[in-house]
């Protein structure tokens, strides 16, 4: 089967106005403006197969949203080729638009003054969804997201989490085969984040939908995505399995020790970098190759009550990847 998304050497530059600081700078800007070219996306290539759930990671301004906007047909690329379900997205053909959806955590398509059901009916008309299909899909979504009590309440009276659930349902009524989710969990509490994740996974499995998801929350990506794309400064720095990158970049382990009697920080520093310390407890960062030797030394030299060796956190690894790029 043909891949859902093919991106080849995608670049996207845009010009920004460089405002000089202060009042004088503002005045100067009226007459003579200085522009700078920003490379939001720089020669990025990847392919996503149908049914894949891929996480898109990167710090703010790395080019995640810009890439998603190109894929959704909102932006023209400066260079490169893109195909979504075989279509060129920025031609904005209805035949493609009926098959994908875009959810932006900070933007709303729901009608503020009206209950969500009204927006759903509008989308039914927009996507030309036959009545039986519409009712069936809405029932399914309402079930998966616990929407039933929210359908008839004005959107403005919903909490952020409730609104996001309704927002997702609005975006999925036409049963899209490709989902672009830009920060779908932003601002949500931990419980609601988990609900949204469970839902995205369920939708992905039920409809074999392709999902490309950006998030600031590492948990979203850790729990949902087998594969991650990591971008930094517009460049793709990693494309592969999440565990693989953790293994590749994890050249250290974290050792946590508790002591029966107070231990001096300096004495511990001889073994490795001390990340945290109080006289009865310490966290050390040790090279992976030397871990057993150092642990043995620790047991020998100090009154160790308890000892644990931990895998590094994905967050730390990713931070390290960004640091290098």
């Amino acid at each position: 089967m043909a891949p859902s998304i093919v991106v080849e050497h995608l670049s996207r530059y845009y010009r920004v106005y460089r405002k000089q600081p202060g009042l004088l700078g503002s005045l100067r800007g009226l007459v003579h403006r200085q522009y700078a070219d920003v490379r939001a996306v720089d020669d990025v290539s990847f392919t996503i197969e149908q049914g894949e759930l891929v996480g898109f990671l990167g710090p703010n301004g790395a080019g995640k949203t810009t890439t998603l906007k190109v894929l959704a047909g909102l932006l023209h690329p400066s260079a490169g080729q893109v195909a979504v379900l075989g279509f060129t997205p920025w031609r904005r053909e209805a035949a493609l638009q009926r098959q994908f959806t875009l959810v932006m955590g900070q933007k709303s398509q729901l009608w503020w003054d009206l209950p969500p059901i009204e927006s759903y009916l509008l989308n039914q008309a927009l996507y030309d969804i036959p009545e039986p299909t519409f009712r069936e899909t809405l029932a399914e979504l309402a079930d998966l997201l616990d929407l039933e009590p929210l359908l008839h309440i004005q959107v403005r009276k919903l909490s952020l989490g409730e609104r996001m659930k309704c927002e997702l349902a609005a975006a999925l009524l036409h049963r899209p085969r490709v989902l672009f989710l830009d920060e779908p969990t932003i601002g949500l509490d931990v419980v609601m984040q988990k609900k949204m994740r469970d839902f995205v996974r369920a939708y992905n499995q039920r409809y074999q939908a392709t999902v490309l998801l950006t998030s600031h929350y590492m948990d979203d990506v850790k729990e949902l995505c087998d594969r991650v794309l990591i971008v930094n400064h517009g460049k793709l720095v990693y494309d592969g399995r999440l565990e693989a990158i953790v293994a590749r970049y994890a050249d250290h382990r974290v050792l946590v020790a508790a002591f029966e009697a107070p231990v001096a920080r300096q004495a511990l520093a001889e073994l490795g970098e001390v990340l945290a310390w109080d006289p009865l407890r310490a966290t050390l960062r040790l090279p992976r190759a030397a871990i057993s030797e150092r642990a043995a030394l620790l047991l020998e030299r100090f009154p160790v009550a308890d000892l644990a060796i931990q895998e590094p956190q994905v967050e730390d690894v990713i931070r390290q990847v960004f640091g290098e790029a």
């Binding site: 909102l74 209805a94 638009q97 994908f100 932006m104 933007k107 398509q109 927009l126 996507y127």
Partner: peptide, 18 residues
Amino acid sequence: NKGELDLILVKPVNSQFF
């Protein structure tokens, strides 16, 4: 101004009409 045009432009409908 708010960028909400994005969510309209992805809909399968003539955007000026909508």
